[in-house]
Amino acid sequence: MRTRRLGLVTTLALACGLLVGVPLGARPAAAAADCLSEARSGLSQCDDTVPPETALTGVSVQPNAAGWVATGTVSFAFAGQHGDADADAVGFECRLDGPVQAHDWSSCTSPRTYQGLADSDVARYVFSVRAVDLADQAITYSFLMPDEPGEDYDATPATLTWGQDTVAPVGFVNPDLYDRQTPQQPVVIARSVPIRLHSNEAGATFECEVDGQGTPCTPGAWRYADAPSGRHFFRARSVDKAGTASAWSATSEFFIPSDLRGRQGWSVVKKSAAFDQTLVTSKREGARLVLPKQRVGELRLYAPTAPSYGRVRVKVGATNWRVVDLAGARSAQREFVVLDRYQGSRTGKIIIEVLSRNKPVFLDAIVARTNVFQA
Rank of each mutant, 00 (worst) to 15 (best):
G58D: 06
S37V: 11
Q264L: 13
F336I: 02
A30D: 12
T251I: 15
A29E: 15
E201D: 14
Y178E: 14
A327W: 00
R284Q: 13
D240S: 08
L43R: 10
F233L: 13
A306H: 05
H198Y: 09
V323D: 15
F92E: 02
A225F: 07
A245H: 01
F172T: 11
I351H: 04
L56M: 09
C94H: 02
D176I: 10
F254G: 05
P194D: 10
D133Y: 03
Y141S: 03
G344K: 11
S41V: 14
P99M: 04
V210R: 14
L18W: 12
D211V: 09
T73G: 06
D165L: 03
V126T: 14
S128Q: 05
A13M: 12
A32L: 10
A118W: 04
A31H: 08
V20W: 11
G243L: 06
A155L: 13
I350V: 15
P169C: 03
A306D: 08
A32H: 11
K283R: 12
V314T: 01
I351G: 06
D240P: 08
G83T: 12
Q181V: 15
T73F: 04
V312C: 01
K315S: 08
H82R: 01
S128L: 00
V9E: 15
R5W: 09
V269S: 01
A318K: 15
G150S: 08
G25K: 08
F255R: 10
A221S: 15
W248E: 02
I366R: 08
C16W: 13
G58I: 07
L117D: 04
T3V: 14
S308W: 09
R313E: 08
Y342T: 15
T205R: 05
P186W: 05
T305G: 03
C108H: 06
E207N: 05
P28V: 10
E285L: 09
Y141D: 02
L279A: 04
R196A: 11
F206N: 01
R223N: 14
A327T: 01
K270A: 14
A368S: 12
R124E: 07
V126N: 07
Q184S: 14
Q164N: 05
V372I: 12
G7F: 14
A202D: 10
G203D: 04
G212Q: 10
G203L: 03
I139N: 00
S249H: 02
S356K: 06
A29P: 07
S107R: 12
R2M: 09
Y153F: 10
A89V: 11
K349D: 14
E335Y: 02
P216C: 06
G286K: 07
A221N: 15
F92P: 03
A236I: 00
R95T: 07
A318C: 05
S37R: 11
F78E: 04
D88A: 12
V126C: 09
G328F: 02
A250K: 11
R346T: 15
V280P: 01
S106T: 13
H198P: 00
D119T: 05
K315I: 06
A190G: 12
D147F: 01
Q294A: 11
R322F: 08
S282V: 03
R191T: 14
D176W: 03
S120L: 05
V187Y: 01
D119R: 02
I139W: 04
E201T: 05
T3I: 14
G243T: 08
K293C: 08
G98Y: 02
L301Q: 04
G67Q: 06
S308R: 10
L326A: 01
A274L: 03
P23K: 08
R300E: 09
